[in-house]
Design a protein around this nucleic acid. Sequence first.
DNA 1: TCTGGGGTCCTAGGACCC
DNA 2: TCTGGGGTCCTAGGACCC
Length: 427
Amino acid sequence: MLGLVDCNNFYASCERSFDPSLIGKAVVVLSNNDGCVVARSNEAKALSIKMGVPLFQLEELRKAHEVKVFSSNYTLYGDMSSRIMSILGRYVEDVEVYSIDEAFMNLTGYESVYPDLAQFAQDVRHRALAWTRIPVSIGLAPTKTLCKVANWYAKREAEHNGALVLDTPAKIEQALYGFDVAELWGVGWRYAGLLKRNGIRTAAHLRDMADDWLAANMTVNGLRLAHELRGLKCNLIETVAPAKKAICTAPSFGQVIPDLDLIRQALTTHVGRVAEKLRKQDSAASAITVFLHTNRFRRTPGNGLAAKQYYGSRTIELPHPTASTAELASYAQAALTAIYRFGYHYQKVGVMLTGLVPADFRQANLFNDGPDDRQVRLARVVDKLNYRYGRDKIRLAAAGYDPIWHHKQQWMSRRYTTRWKDILKVK
DNA sequence: TCTGGGGTCCTAGGACCC
DNA sequence: TCTGGGGTCCTAGGACCC
């Protein structure tokens, strides 16, 4: 048996964890740049606030119902997430952290330790709630896909009390019989349309389709999905996160920017960010891509017509893999110079590192001397200082002093668990 | 005025090798 | 000019996840 633990309304629950005055109120958390709603408390869902709606469309509801709005506070959510994950680690050896608010647990071999799975699930829920104030839902089943199904019911149907165990063919059959295929893990809006057109409406129906049909219409992914619904494990628990194959950052500016110098500063800052992530996983990058684009929603002030749009991107193959911020920044600047066009209002500049190889990887190259190791050692020292004294305390001068391009975060809560001056005071 | 960010995997087709 | 069988690597595009 496997288990899936999923935090309910995670970001909203984190905010609530440290501010009890939010209990019982509609809480929403926004995406970066205070753009769209990405998390909602149950009260906010009850007001029909949809996932992904832009904040400015919420004005009336906000006034009428006193909706509490928060900018996303990833420092807080990340720390709360690791607290939850460490709680799960007290129960079983193998925990796969699947996302910031979800984890799979491997219960294989724990049959005698936890003979009553329903009781086990309630224990986990109670401990998570007691130690973090985060409510979680739990689904237990023989495969990951079935765990997702079990979790779906556990979260939505009150009679399960937050946890559902699918451990017999009869229970699984009943769960799949009424389950909308569009809700399945691995079925997005395109496959949902395809399945609907073919008259396949429930998970049970998809499970019973012929393998040939599944492979032909949904590739091997569809085949695996159906096999998992039949109880055959295709996705195993991965307890060690594999190294990333690409690292990207592309946050929007807080306002549109036409000016190349400011875009350069933002780009240099973003390179600092991706290079830090690169060194953290002990990799080096073989190629760097820079892209620059305008805001597709923008109307020209004055005449209200759709603003003219531009999208530019450039990839540079590096002479040798490197993890040096300074070296990556200079190639990034060259790419930006090549794609920048005067006369547009830009919304974001992004950078992506690809062709990631282990940092100690050395490929003989006849035509140059290879990377300068001192640069990378220097960057690692900078990483340590910034970890200790705060992000961007030490950075390239080209990143500028006054990041006016920085994204908006007007309603940010405190970093309750990671900053001494933000810690709660008990009076 | 205001509309997120960061990833993975699979397939087909082209180019190439012996 | 046409002929067989067995491969690899790369890229673009499409699908999905949170």
